[in-house]
């Protein structure tokens, strides 16, 4: 069961401003039946660009309905320019927070608002352009990049929570990881991760492992007076021997698994298993 705040429940059970405005000044229609949630927002805007009325119709779960209801409450009486500044986090905050898996509901609210304002102003939304990354939910790269930046997303899982991208067949996971790294300004590291060959000869594998040990692992260990030596590579098993201060260190097994194995999996082959040759 989801842990919804009292405010989410209140707005779900007693939603405000349900319906559709006749002859609206702007309409925002986002989501779809296939995606499992959809929101149609209609606005009435006066000559001074004040939103005098807003109504919604939503297909979706409790948090989608509550987010829509909250959104209408937040924008009625506001100037369009001011309303345009509302972020999905503002909607979530208004409701006292949303479960992280449901953040995409607040994103849907913000998207509907943007679409409605763009419709009112007669402009085209930049996100409507972009290139589809997640085919299951029709999410574009521009939308994803924006979510990563705005909400400071740090993992593919978080991207899915906020935008739904990657929540279907999962085929776009690699692309999402790329977007994440590029957007988070880690473009340098991606190359090292992505150019990992699918099949390597045993020799290539050993060379690669040695390289990574030399470049990524040893400097850190040496700082603490320790060292590591590659003993053997047998299939996926990488036998290493810890030297110096590492031999007497109680954390050496953790170092092997958490640090050495993790790095090797990341940079060489994700099936590698690191073992201590001395144990």
């Amino acid at each position: 069961m989801w842990e919804y705040t009292d405010l989410v429940q209140e707005h779900f059970l007693h939603p405000r401003n349900v319906g559709e405005i006749e002859n609206p000044s702007g309409v925002g229609d986002v989501g779809s039946l296939a995606c499992g949630d959809a929101l149609k927002l209609t606005l009435k805007v006066d000559e001074q660009d004040i939103i005098t009325d807003a109504k919604f119709k939503t297909f979706g779960c409790a948090s989608a309905i509550a987010s829509s209801s909250a959104l209408t409450e937040m924008i009625i009486g506001r100037h369009v320019d001011e309303a345009a500044k509302i972020t999905n986090q503002d909607i979530a905050d208004f409701l006292g927070g949303l479960p992280k898996e449901k953040m995409h509901c607040s994103v849907m609210g913000r998207e509907a608002l943007e679409a409605a304002i763009a419709d009112f102003r007669g402009t085209v939304l930049p996100t409507a352009e972009g290139e589809i990354v997640c085919e299951c939910f029709g999410v574009t790269d521009l939308e994803i990049i924006r979510a990563i930046k705005e909400s400071n997303l740090r993992s593919v899982e978080e991207i899915t929570n906020f935008t739904k991208a990657g929540g279907g067949c999962g085929k776009c996971e690699e692309k999402l990881r790329n977007l994440l790294q590029v957007t988070a300004g880690e473009a340098m590291e991606i190359k090292a991760v992505n150019i990992k060959p699918q099949r390597m000869t045993a020799l290539q594998k050993i060379k690669k492992i040695e390289e990574v040990l030399e470049r990524e692992i040893k400097p850190g260990l040496r700082k603490d007076g320790g060292d590591i030596e590659l003993i053997d590579v047998d299939g996926d098993f990488v036998m290493v021997s810890l030297r110096g201060a590492c031999t007497s260190c109680a954390k050496s097994q953790t170092t092997l698994k958490q640090h050495v194995e993790k790095k090797l999996r990341e940079l060489v082959l994700d099936t590698l298993i690191v073992e201590d040759a001395n144990s």
Partner: peptide, 25 residues
């Protein structure tokens, strides 16, 4: 044209327990 989680949470108000194949649940 309605979503399962929303139905379940309304049923929950009457202490009726059921489940849904909807994505959101």
């Amino acid at each position: 044209f309605v979503e399962g989680e929303a139905i379940l949470l309304h049923l929950n108000r009457y202490n009726i327990c059921a489940s849904s194949g909807s994505a959101c649940t």
